[in-house]
């Protein structure tokens, strides 16, 4: 599903837009341990985390994850937003828990016909 539509239907607040208006999300990954994310998250995932420091942008970049969603209102600070903008990584935030966000994502990707 196109990221913009997913974000709208998941009720996410946008912090950094994707550079690609047709940015496709194929699946999702939830995790806060960075090496586990690198080991297990598939490319083109929507990554849901409560980590909000600079290193998450680098993790998303090397792992080919084009979008990070900060759960539980974990709003990153300006340098992180700046780094994501430069790296072309989309950022969103939501007050919902990772469990709740993953549930919404899963429902949209896997139970609704396109």
């Amino acid at each position: 599903m196109i990221l913009h539509e997913l974000a709208r239907r998941m009720d996410l607040e946008r912090l950094v837009d994707s550079q690609d208006a047709t940015h496709e999300i194929e699946t999702g990954y939830v995790g806060d341990l960075l090496s586990h994310v690198l080991a297990s998250a598939k490319s083109n995932s929507l990554w849901i985390t409560i980590q909000r420091h600079e290193n998450v942008v680098a993790v998303a970049q090397v792992a080919g994850l084009g979008c990070i969603v900060f759960a539980e209102g974990m709003r990153p600070e300006a340098p992180v937003i700046e780094r994501a903008r430069n790296a072309g990584i989309a950022l969103y935030v939501s007050p919902a828990s990772a469990f709740e966000l993953a549930g919404r994502l899963h429902k949209l990707l896997h139970t609704e016909a396109p």
Binding site: L33, S35, Q51
Partner: peptide, 15 residues
């Protein structure tokens, strides 16, 4: 605290 320390880094490099 920053999400490091899973003890997976060297394993990821090898893999």
């Amino acid at each position: 605290d920053l999400g490091f320390g899973a003890g997976m880094g060297l394993h990821n490099m090898e893999k």
